[in-house]
């Protein structure tokens, strides 16, 4: 049922060429089985929202995509490169995969501009002035070019998160991962971050977002994944997912998050 719904998408993209493939992935923290039989792929240009109760393994799943977490069984292939213990492969994948964290994780000892140019200069080997010009473009896109010479500690949470998005974009990634990007923000700042993410989605960026923002999922996602206890329980196009959830666990979850 879920598969059929996915197949009926209006924009199939380059369907034979997934940018992220997870095949039978399992992960344990000690004895705790945190990811179970994850079979999941993302096409280029596709926008995925992953939701689920806390502790369901959704953050762990996207952190496996750039190897912040190691999986113990199965295969993960990103942009044709398989993630193994080979550190060169891991670094190649990380260049192409941008990540935005719940707690921003900006570098507090560097200015906003330096935060944005660190990767392009030291990882991509761009000349400084070129990296700075690109960084200013992205800072304008997230609407904070005037903060370029400030330090992260001088910015509000929403501004910091927008800088974090700009920092990831400066690496010119093929995929953007968002790990609960609005969960640490005050309500009035959530909108400014979501607006930036929606604009980014409109540019055709491939995005995988772990978020509880169901409004965002409805408007932006091509596909919504629901995870519970380490398993992908249900995935579907948003209209179907929200209007007609199939699994009992999804129904319970949706009734709880949509109740307020």
């Amino acid at each position: 049922m879920a598969e059929a719904a996915v197949d009926s998408r209006t924009d199939p993209g380059s369907r034979d060429d997934p940018i992220i493939q997870m095949i039978g992935v399992h992960k344990w923290y000690g004895q705790f089985h945190v990811l179970k039989q994850i079979d999941f792929s993302v096409d280029r240009g596709e926008r995925i929202v992953i939701c689920g109760p806390s502790g369901s393994g959704k953050s762990t799943l996207i952190r496996c995509i750039n190897r912040l977490e190691e999986h113990q069984r199965g295969r993960i292939i990103v942009d044709g490169i398989e993630l193994t213990n080979d550190i060169r492969n891991i670094e190649l994948v990380r260049r192409e995969v941008g990540m935005v964290f719940q707690h921003f994780n900006l570098f507090p000892h560097l200015t906003v501009l330096e935060n944005c140019t660190l990767g392009p200069i030291w990882v991509r080997g761009q000349p400084r002035n070129e990296a700075e010009a690109t960084a200013m473009q992205y800072l304008e896109r997230v609407r904070i070019p005037e903060q370029a010479s400030k330090y992260p500690g001088q910015l509000s949470g929403g501004q910091q998160q927008r800088v974090a998005i700009a920092r990831a974009l400066c690496m010119n990634p093929k995929v953007m991962l968002f790990d609960e990007p609005t969960s640490a923000l005050d309500p009035e700042m959530i909108k400014e971050v979501l607006d930036v993410m929606i604009e980014l989605a409109e540019t055709g960026m491939t995005m995988v977002c772990v978020t509880h923002e169901m409004g965002f999922a409805r408007t932006v996602a091509d596909r919504v994944l629901f995870m519970d206890r380490g398993q992908i329980v249900e995935q579907n196009v948003p209209e179907e997912f929200f209007a007609n959830p199939q699994s009992e666990r999804t129904k319970v979850f949706l009734s709880q998050v949509l109740a307020h």
């Binding site: 750039n66 912040l68 670094e91 990380r94 707690h103 994780n105 030291w122 990882v123 920092r167 990831a168």
Partner: peptide, 18 residues
């Protein structure tokens, strides 16, 4: 140094020494 600093540095592709 919080764990997030290491993760953010790794996520932009910096190697161990950098």
């Amino acid at each position: 140094i919080p764990r997030g600093q290491f993760e953010a540095a790794e996520a932009i592709g910096l190697g161990y020494w950098k």
